[in-house]
Nucleic acid binder design. Structure first.
Lengths: 337, 337
DNA sequence: CTGAAAGCGCTAACAC
DNA sequence: GTGTTAGCGCTTTCAG
């Protein structure tokens, strides 16, 4: 069979092959196969014949050739730091779903929080003619924006704000206030009225700084002083958080504001080393949502970021090319456990 | 400035623009910018000049044009059903990392367990000239393989076996045996010696069927009869699992083999409705790993699938194009909690 | 060491 | 209604 030899030779069927088989021209084949044939008023008969042959031959258009010729690529790119966490996983998943629903081709790539990889990935996406790049939780969003700008690619920051492009981020301050208030309230139930601990994140990190501000403001409003050693910001890692907790002198009761699920892992591991009595008198809440973490016994609540809303906003910006200079804040949802 | 007008016009710098600025030819620019200039013995001076100008102009190669001309694309595609779960998240993440380390360009896309989306995504990847498509947990892997075959694209099944292409899957039988044995042993500690319940999955699903066989075989080997109503396979959803558990008549002690973390969510929700005494006399284990689920009080162990090993094997197949007809089994790791 | 030229597969004027 | 033709931006012989 003709196809077999093509496969062995590594050559794929082209519109010229189909044109020959259908005894017509390449342009007719092209317009039929890409749906623009109504505009060209090609006969239904020819269209059917071409479609049938293409099907039979297992034809697949060469996207590279098509994209090279077309004006728009319809490719939208996204960079996320990690997939293996519910927050970024959902972002990637929803981004793909929305893109497809709009007839766009999503390509998302994860960059492991490595600045060099972020830059490399952004360059690749630009090279692939992406029309827009959404950078999620990037370490240096402004650098990525600069690359995009040089290529005329729209860039949008999600989750973490930048100065050079539109940013759509969670209302970290509001979310942190709500969570702090909830944990304080629930600590009263175990008879603890003192300051909470704040655990996880880096002080230099924007989101951590804003959440910490919310945390402190609520304490202040309630007239509770927060000792300096209640703020533990050793970075984003379960081990670091666990170590930080272990380094604390034992308390008979306490409440913890955990900054991110990754830190929560460390806190929970630490809490499992506690005796029953101490664990009974422990309450924590976490900024970020994870369905299993929500089922943990001492967990009083989690802050869920509104991913759909953030993405919707980002796509709105793509459509309108409206560029507000202030970050757009999207409220979070507090989910008491 | 020239660049500014280009940006406004939406036209990007090409090798011809650079050639003009560097007073040389497009072919020289091309070879310098894609690294093949040593082979062409281009002077260091010219190379430096070209690089410098390209940098200044913010040049970015058009991947479509380059790919159209080249023999190989270096694109490798992957389809996963979901990102928002630790297992598939890790698969996607590690796939990207390994691909990059090998100089390949990974494109992964998630298909929501929708057969139509799987087909569409596969066609897109083929159209983008992917050299290989790894289908993870596909609902109809053989269909995807057929599409790949027609285009001369290597196809590999991961996690779920197919008949038409090489399959790399977890040793579900062995893993299920180990987990069953562990749960039975730990149930003795609470004085329960009866049959476990098996919860989650669909009976028609390959992995569920194999795991169930391991579950039953261990019971049989220990001389424990498994009543039919101990097998609850209402599909993959937390709600279904929760309903299934609620429909059971109350027991004073029980052990559960939970099939997948999504079902575990339902089981844990159900268990939270139990009184303290009943919860004390409950033990479960789960096939699939999640770090928070591992911290749940009644959880005695989780089966972690060996993702690195599976991917390594898949890439080996890509390299050697060796096509064993039997699925390749990769052992799981039992992680007692 | 370097440049000219052909062509990858497809699209979109334009011609008939 | 349909075919011809001129590129899209790049890589790669082949000549010098």
């Amino acid at each position: 069979m003709a196809e077999d030899s093509r496969i062995l030779a590594g050559k794929r069927t082209t519109i010229y092959d189909i044109a020959r088989l259908a005894e017509t021209s390449a342009s007719a084949v092209s317009s039929v196969l890409n749906g623009s044939w109504q505009k060209r008023r090609i006969s239904k008969r020819l269209a059917a014949k071409i479609t049938e042959i293409a099907e039979r031959e297992g034809y697949s258009a060469n996207a590279q050739a098509s994209l090279l010729r077309r004006a728009r690529s319809n490719i939208v790119g996204m960079i996320v730091p990690k997939y293996d966490n519910r927050y970024f996983g959902s972002i990637a998943e929803q981004f793909e779903a929305i893109s497809r629903a709009r007839g766009l081709f999503p390509v998302v790539t994860c960059t492991q929080r490595e600045p060099a990889l972020e830059v490399e990935a952004a360059k690749e996406l630009i090279s692939f003619q992406a029309e827009c790049l959404i950078a999620t939780g990037a370490t240096d969003p402004d650098h990525l924006t600069a690359l995009c700008e040089a290529a005329g690619v729209l860039s949008i920051n999600l989750d973490l704000p930048g100065n050079a492009a539109v940013s759509v981020i969670s209302d970290n301050y509001g979310g942190a206030r709500e969570l702090t208030a909830l944990i304080l309230d629930r600590c009263r139930e175990i008879g603890y009225e003192g300051a909470l601990h704040f655990v996880g994140g880096r002080p230099s990190d924007h989101n951590t700084a804003v959440r910490l501000r919310g945390f402190l403001d609520v304490h202040h409003a309630r007239g509770i002083a927060v000792p300096e050693d209640h703020v533990l910001v050793p970075g984003y890692s379960a081990d670091r958080a666990e170590q930080a907790m272990k380094s604390l002198s034992p308390r008979d009761a306490m409440g913890i504001f955990v900054n991110s699920t990754i830190s929560l892992e460390g806190v929970v591991r630490w809490s499992q080393g506690l005796n029953d009595a101490a664990r009974q008198r422990l309450r924590y809440g976490c900024f970020d949502y994870d369905p299993f973490a929500a089922l943990l016994p001492s967990n009083v609540g989690m802050v869920q970021q509104n991913i759909s809303k953030m993405l919707e906003t980002a796509f709105d910006i793509m459509d309108t090319r409206r560029h507000p200079s202030e970050p757009i804040l999207v409220p979070c949802v507090l989910r008491p456990c």
